[in-house]
Nucleic acid binder design. Structure first.
Lengths: 263, 263
DNA sequence: AAGTGGTCTAGACCACCTA
DNA sequence: AGGTGGTCTAGACCACTTT
């Protein structure tokens, strides 16, 4: 059997003796303690990938908890993707793999939240005829007038990203008002403002810097970059705004951990 | 006041009359029904961004539910990022923005799960001297021997992605065994196999196809692509395997929806 | 002190799967 | 039929924030 290389003694030098208890006086909630015990057992190979976890009822009984608390513990592992619940059947240990993973825009959020160190320069703010991607993204006829705004966003004094934004040209629209606001930092596409959008769609794409972008962002033309496209919809579900951020992968690393990391 | 363009009458043509009830005979769980009511109120502007949701206790009372059930409903919105809970203070409606978002590798998962339509060709399987990225990623000395495997993965008969993988050369290691297995599909980096890794780290990068990749994947050299790097660690927390997938953005779209989409 | 989210209990019933 | 996860109740106490 191939797995003989990975028998228990080799897997888990710090063997788990099965005597783990829940410390009800601990500041750590019981469900977190149980979740940690389960994680440790998974990482030690006691619960192998593909196998079934003890039922929530038996966990509750064994650890002296109520069923809801045991369930909450299993829920932690389920949210982390370590385990998969199947109604009527059981909870099964998942094998780790590249596809069970997701990437958050934490780096972007951290930068946008740190308002004190943010600065914005308007590179361009005009009205143009619609054509190409913005035209189809906003669902407007070719040649219709669109507001175009380009911004250079600096973080801690250094160029961070370039944003390009399009919107239908409507003098009464507060979207256009906001787009043309020079204090754009407190404007669209950031959490810290009064937004008039209820939903949006983001798309992450690989791209490379053109010469202008490379110069503005202190990079090299042709270097690879992320392009984060965004479409926001207004209250009548019409696409109201389209645009994208261009940012280098160094400034927005997309990293994801899978499996058991905290033991 | 700028928001005058967005007063209630304009926001919500299908006004919510506040008479929503929980149908306890419905097949839809009560907490889902309440979550939907809350979402609708948010999308209708009844709960504006930044404002506080009714407390879980008052929701429970108003809708005739127990506190736990009301809490579960609010939890749905919290998981979706529509709302943020602050202990001791309340639950607040979040404004939508680019940074409150995450991208899953659904497309990759769908392909890797559909084993019937998958095919793998080994492009290369050799032992080389370590240098460069694989060398530092695996934490081995320059010049140490590494197993290198390159695979072309086809989906429904068409080239889908190229994978390159490195591992320390250890004749006894089942990792190497698995890497050199020509039936690699049922091998490493996929969920549907016996894995000997307990944790891994993924990194998503922008890249472009080189000539070989472009030819194998029916694309053009210089076209932008995603590069999904992966490092897996063995039971002693040593990096055991390093590699990456190269895949075109058309075949692995990374899309994320934010805000209220189901009304 | 009052209100809020966070945890927890000891039950209960249901939908689903497997034997 | 029995086991499993999924939902739900009606309480309780705690930690934290606001007043």
């Amino acid at each position: 059997m191939v797995r003989s290389f990975f028998d228990q003694s080799r897997i888990s030098p710090t063997e788990s003796d099965g005597t783990e208890k829940i410390d009800k006086t601990s500041y750590l909630p019981a469900y977190v303690q149980l979740a940690n015990i389960l994680k440790q057992r998974i990482s030690a190979g006691i619960y192998e990938p593909g196998s079934r976890l003890p039922s929530e009822a038996s966990l509750a009984k064994h650890f002296g908890l109520s069923a809801m608390t045991a369930r909450q513990a299993v829920g932690v592992l389920a949210e982390e993707g370590l385990v998969k619940r199947v109604q009527g059947s059981g909870t099964f240990v998942q094998r780790i793999g590249v596809a069970t993973s997701h990437f958050g825009l934490d780096a972007l959020r951290d930068v946008f939240m740190d308002k004190d160190n943010l600065d914005v320069r308007i590179l361009k703010a005009t009205v143009e005829s619609a054509q190409g991607a913005p035209c189809s993204a906003l669902g407007v006829a070719n040649g219709e007038r669109l507001v175009v705004v380009e911004r250079l966003i600096l973080y801690q004094g250094h160029p961070f990203t370039i944003q390009v934004g399009y919107a239908r040209f409507d003098p009464e629209s507060p979207i256009v008002e906001t787009m043309l606001d020079t204090k754009m930092l407190t404007g669209l596409f950031f959490e810290n403002t009064t937004s008039c959008f209820m939903k949006g769609e983001l798309r992450l794409l690989p791209a490379f810097f053109n010469e202008q972008e490379a110069e503005l962002l202190n990079s090299k033309a042709g270097a690879c970059a992320f392009r984060l496209e965004h479409i926001f919809y207004d209250f009548s579900d019409q696409p109201a705004s389209f645009g994208w951020f261009t940012v280098s992968p160094e400034k927005m690393p997309l990293i994801s951990k899978v499996g058991v990391w905290n033991e």
